[in-house]
Simulated scan of single mutants.
Amino acid sequence: MAEHLASIFGTEKDRVNCPFYFKIGACRHGDRCSRLHNRPTISPTILMANMYQNPLLNAPLGPDGLPIRVDPKAAQEHFEDFYEDVFEELAQHGELENLNVCDNFADHMVGNVYAKFRDEDAAARALQALQGRYYDGRQIIIEFSPVTDFREATCRQYEENTCNRGGYCNFMHLKPIGRELRRKLFGRYHRRDRDRDRERSRSPRRDRDRDRDRDRDRRRSRSRDRARGRSRSRERGGGGGGGGDRRARETSEERRARIASWNMERDDRDGGGGPGGPPGPPPYGGGGGGYNPW
Rank of each mutant, 00 (worst) to 15 (best):
E3F: 08
H4V: 14
I8T: 12
G10N: 07
E12P: 05
P19T: 02
Y21A: 04
G25Y: 04
C27S: 08
R28H: 11
R32H: 11
R35P: 08
L36T: 09
R39Q: 14
P40E: 10
P40D: 03
T41L: 10
P55F: 09
L57M: 07
N58F: 15
A59D: 02
L61P: 01
G65T: 11
L66D: 15
D71C: 08
E80V: 11
E84K: 05
E88W: 02
A91L: 05
G94F: 06
N100P: 02
D103E: 13
D103Q: 11
N104Q: 07
N104M: 07
N104T: 12
D107R: 11
H108E: 07
M109G: 03
G111P: 02
N112W: 00
V113K: 00
A115H: 00
R118P: 09
E120L: 06
D121K: 12
A124M: 08
R125F: 01
A129T: 14
D136H: 10
Q139D: 09
I140P: 01
I142S: 00
I142P: 00
S145H: 00
V147F: 03
F150D: 13
F150Q: 08
E152F: 12
R156H: 10
N164F: 15
R165Y: 10
Y168W: 08
Y168G: 06
M172C: 09
H173D: 03
H173G: 08
L174M: 15
K175N: 01
P176S: 06
R183W: 05
R183A: 07
K184C: 12
F186T: 03
F186N: 00
G187S: 14
R192P: 00
D193C: 02
R194S: 00
D197W: 03
D197E: 12
E199A: 06
R200E: 05
R200W: 02
S201M: 00
R202L: 07
S203Y: 00
P204I: 04
D207R: 13
D211N: 11
R212W: 02
D217A: 08
S221L: 12
A227E: 13
R230Y: 07
S231D: 15
S231Y: 13
E235P: 01
G239V: 14
G242V: 10
G243T: 14
G244A: 11
D245Q: 09
A248W: 08
A248G: 05
T251H: 04
T251I: 13
E254S: 10
E254Y: 09
A257Y: 10
I259Q: 04
S261M: 12
W262N: 06
N263A: 04
M264L: 10
D267Y: 03
D267T: 15
G273A: 08
G277R: 06
G277N: 15
P281L: 12
P281Q: 03
Y284V: 12
Y284S: 14
G286F: 08
G289D: 05
G290T: 08
Y291L: 09
